[in-house]
Computed example of a mutant assay.
Amino acid sequence: MRLKALFAASAVLLTSFSVAQAGTVHTTWEKFKAGHAMHRLSVDGQKAMMDVFQARDLLAQGKTDAAIPPLYDAQKRFKAASADNKKFFAAESQLQPAPQHPVSANHTPVANPTTWVPVGGEFIVSETLAPEKQAALANANKQFQAGQTQQAQQSLQVVGEDADFILALAPLEQSEGALYRAKVFTEGRQPQQAVEALNQLLDGIVFVSDDVVEKVAPSTPAKKAN
């Protein structure tokens, strides 16, 4: 479904260029794919996850005081993510986790339909790539995660149409609950329990193909933020 949408969007380009300009068309298609992927993500959701990882690292070192600000920031950013148009409402059974990135061994499926926030993404391939394409794909992921869209686009041109995109989805309500527990434990000077709460948040993340979101997001009503 995602590829169909991408090719449909580039159909005008294909009818406007000659065979001799095929390289230009291909480059344009790759840029569209990278931009489309970036558009899927929640900016606040991405920042919230960076805060979570920062707090987790500090708590693992026993630095409870230093971990409090990023925990508060993560809470505020998840709250902001709950109001943006990148979230969607669905049952986990609808999501079909990507086989290239299975859920954590400690993952507990969400029983009821819930709000999901796209908090990250990754370019993947299903076929074996030549070494230079593997290196380009690794660079594209690093650049994409750093918000360097233009550089990621350039790296993807080396990979070609073999690349696909998967999204990391965080269940909003469950993530906010885990963050609240982590904050309470941190303020109570219990770093180990706080780390466990953040691990529960990370274990709740599901990676899905972009085309799954294409199918699910428009067909289900968004859950209203409290």
Rank of each mutant, 00 (worst) to 15 (best):
S126P: 03
Q143H: 08
I205T: 05
G160K: 12
V117W: 00
A146D: 13
D162C: 06
T186Y: 05
T149M: 11
I124E: 08
K133G: 09
Q154C: 03
Q134M: 15
A152I: 15
Q153N: 12
V158Q: 11
Y180C: 02
V208S: 00
A130V: 06
G204S: 12
F185A: 02
A197M: 09
Q190S: 04
V119F: 05
F144D: 00
A136E: 03
F144L: 10
F144G: 01
L156P: 00
E127P: 01
F165Y: 15
S155A: 11
P171C: 09
F165V: 03
Q143S: 07
G188W: 11
L198V: 11
K142L: 15
G160M: 04
A146H: 09
Q148A: 13
L202G: 00
Q174P: 08
E176N: 12
G160P: 10
I124Y: 05
D162I: 15
Y180F: 04
L137M: 11
A168D: 03
T128G: 06
K133R: 13
E122V: 13
R181V: 05
Y180G: 02
A178T: 04
V184M: 10
V159Y: 00
E176R: 14
S126V: 10
T149F: 06
Y180A: 03
F207C: 02
T114L: 10
G188A: 08
E161N: 04
Q192W: 07
L172A: 07
V158M: 04
A135Q: 14
K183T: 08
W116Q: 01
I205F: 02
N141A: 10
A140H: 10
V158H: 03
E122I: 05
L169T: 04
L202D: 06
Q151C: 05
G120R: 04
F144S: 01
Q151R: 15
R181M: 13
E161D: 10
I205L: 11
T128Q: 03
E187N: 06
G188M: 09
Q145T: 12
Q174H: 08
T115H: 06
Q200E: 09
Q200H: 11
Q200G: 11
V159K: 01
N199L: 11
S155H: 09
W116T: 01
L167R: 00
E122W: 05
V119T: 07
S209Y: 08
D164S: 15
V158I: 07
T115S: 14
G204F: 00
A138N: 05
